[in-house]
């Protein structure tokens, strides 16, 4: 934490950035995002195991961008989000300073996004997380049972769109669910509306989801919707040997054609 605050002080007092997006103390037992703009606010920065929210979402928020040049304290999930956003032309070196944080609270300095990419590549393929294990468990169920499981889960959805709002990759200014000429996805949170919404959300994140699980954590009703996007991430990995947020290059398998693709329908 000391290393983090020291680095943060340096760039705030040095005028390198106007705001540092990081974590601070929140409600009892919770951490929350804070936006440090003064040395006093920098002293409130923390990092520990409660700091799970994917802060990269704020890099896309107009009200945060309006504060001026940003720095962000970035755990591995945030680093991968940044790479993915940069690969989609949403971020450049001019926009931000990245302060990497290791799991034990150490600081990694990155002169630019290229350095973030090198760091992530050097760290190797991300380890399979617990969610992948849950997905495998669900996959083992017979089709009928799996269908039943998701029907039940999604029937509780009230379409508050916390999943969308919490996801750094859901930065569209106008979401498909809000396009109404024609109305592609039913807006109401009834059976069909929920099903189509979650399928659409998962599809639009396919090859882009960095598996931070934020959508699932954000859901006020505790629906494990992160498993949907993570299931597709697993599929993409097995089919294309690809994981999102590992590179600055636009190589999303679903939107990139390669002559050696397995499928030949496009040729």
């Amino acid at each position: 934490m000391e290393a983090l605050r020291k680095k943060a002080h340096e760039i705030i007092t040095g005028g390198q950035v106007k705001v540092i997006i990081g974590y601070g103390e929140g409600s009892p037992e919770r951490a929350r995002a804070i936006f440090a703009q003064t040395p006093a606010e920098v002293d409130q920065l923390i990092f520990d195991q409660r700091c799970l929210q994917n802060l990269a979402v704020y890099l896309m928020k107009p009200e945060v961008k309006a504060l001026g040049k940003m720095a962000i304290t970035a755990s591995k999930n945030v680093l991968r989000s940044i790479l993915q956003l940069a690969s989609e032309n949403q971020l450049t070196d001019a926009d931000l300073v990245v302060i990497g944080i290791t799991d034990d609270g150490g600081v990694i300095e990155f002169p630019n996004l290229q350095a973030v990419e090198e760091h992530i590549k050097a760290a190797g393929t991300p380890a399979k997380n617990e969610d992948r294990a849950r997905i495998e468990e669900i996959d083992k169920k017979p089709l009928e049972e799996r269908w039943q499981y998701w029907q039940e889960q999604l029937s509780a959805c009230v379409k508050c769109y916390a999943c969308r709002s919490a996801c750094p990759m859901c930065y569209c200014t106008r979401c498909t669910v809000e396009c109404n000429q024609p109305q592609w996805i039913p807006a109401p949170s009834h059976h069909l509306g929920n099903l189509e919404w979650h399928i659409m959300r998962a599809m639009h994140l396919t090859g882009r989801c960095i598996e931070c699980g934020e959508c699932g954590r954000a859901c006020p009703l505790g629906l494990p919707i992160n498993l949907l996007t993570q299931k597709l991430a697993a599929e993409i990995e097995s089919q294309f040997d690809w994981q999102a947020g590992m590179s600055l290059k636009v190589e999303n398998p679903l939107s990139t054609f390669k002559p050696d693709d397995k499928e030949n329908f496009i040729k």
Partner: peptide, 13 residues
């Protein structure tokens, strides 16, 4: 409201 991400979780619960 800086940390608010503009979802409807508060209103819907």
């Amino acid at each position: 409201s800086l940390r608010c991400i503009g979802c409807g979780a508060c209103a819907f619960v």
